[in-house]
């Protein structure tokens, strides 16, 4: 494990211990500077990433506020069949305000279906979902209008909530900037690259300030930088007290999530 790996592991440990975004960034940067100037094996200089993160938490405490709050999404006993095939069997998930939940599992195990049931777009054969507050949903694809500009998407979403045009456009552009995207250009959605289009898709779902945010593989077409921006954004939203559900087949971000629902048929059900 070289210094970069150690720093990455350390950053992940801080995230998991809910050290706030800025505080974590500063501590990691300071450790990086120290290693650069002094050299040496990070395991000797700082100890294990876990131990050092624990020491940091003891010194500065965790970020205020982001402790999990009341339950925002409660899905229980969700069962869904398509014809003879059972896609979901008795799946349950509870997500609280200030938590990120990951729905994982092999292809075709019903991850998207589960999310669409939570969003109320598909009816299950059994089970119920309770959502507290506003619901936001980001579909895997097709959630944008080919022949509209990004600004027009923001206006459309804003009008749904009675937000006037100007403020809706500004809010949309601000939300897009959080993902490292300047949405002010007059480019039709159909001419946006796959990754940028996905950012538009995402921005639309966060624009309505949802209390529960459901994201279906939201990083498709993203490069590494956008991917990092996305997770920073999700962490920020979580720390603001939103409940977030991410459908993903990438497991390397699981250290940043609070709840995992594995829908792989062999061991169905939730664990946290």
């Amino acid at each position: 494990m070289n210094a970069d790996d150690w720093l990455r592991a350390f950053a992940a440990e801080l995230y998991q211990r809910r050290v706030g975004g800025d505080a974590a960034r500063h501590v990691v940067a300071e450790a990086a500077t120290h290693l650069r100037e002094g050299g040496g094996d990070p395991w000797l200089v700082f100890g294990s990433p876990q131990a050092y993160a624990a020491a940091i938490v003891e010194s500065i405490g965790t970020a205020p506020g982001p402790r999990p709050g009341p339950v925002r999404l409660h899905a229980r006993g969700i069962t869904k069949r398509y014809g003879r095939q059972v896609v979901l069997r008795d799946a349950s998930l509870t997500v609280r305000a200030g938590q990120i939940a990951a729905v994982v599992g092999a292809n075709g195990c019903g991850k998207s279906t589960f999310l669409r049931i939570c969003a109320g777009l598909v009816s299950p054969d059994a089970g119920e979902v309770t959502v507290s507050g506003r619901l936001g949903y980001c579909p895997q694809q097709g959630g944008t209008a080919d022949f509209l500009l990004p600004d027009e998407h923001f206006v459309l979403v804003g009008a749904g909530q009675g937000v006037p045009r100007g403020p809706a456009r500004q809010a949309g552009r601000a939300a897009a900037r959080q993902l490292g995207w300047d949405a002010g250009n007059a480019v039709l959605a159909r001419h946006l690259s796959g990754g940028t289009r996905q950012k538009l898709n995402l921005t639309m779902s966060t624009l309505a300030q949802p209390d529960v945010l459901l994201l279906d593989e939201p990083y498709q077409g993203f490069d590494q930088g956008s991917y990092v921006d996305l997770w920073d954004q999700l962490t920020r939203l979580r720390d603001e007290g939103r409940a977030i559900v991410v459908v993903t087949h990438l497991l390397n971000q699981l250290d940043r999530v609070d709840v995992v629902l594995d829908l792989t048929p062999a061991h169905q059900g939730g664990r946290s």
């Binding site: 936001g136 097709g142 209008a145 979403v157 309505a208």
Partner: peptide, 10 residues
Amino acid sequence: ELEPRLRLTG
């Protein structure tokens, strides 16, 4: 695909 999500936004 757009309409269901617009429905969710009010």
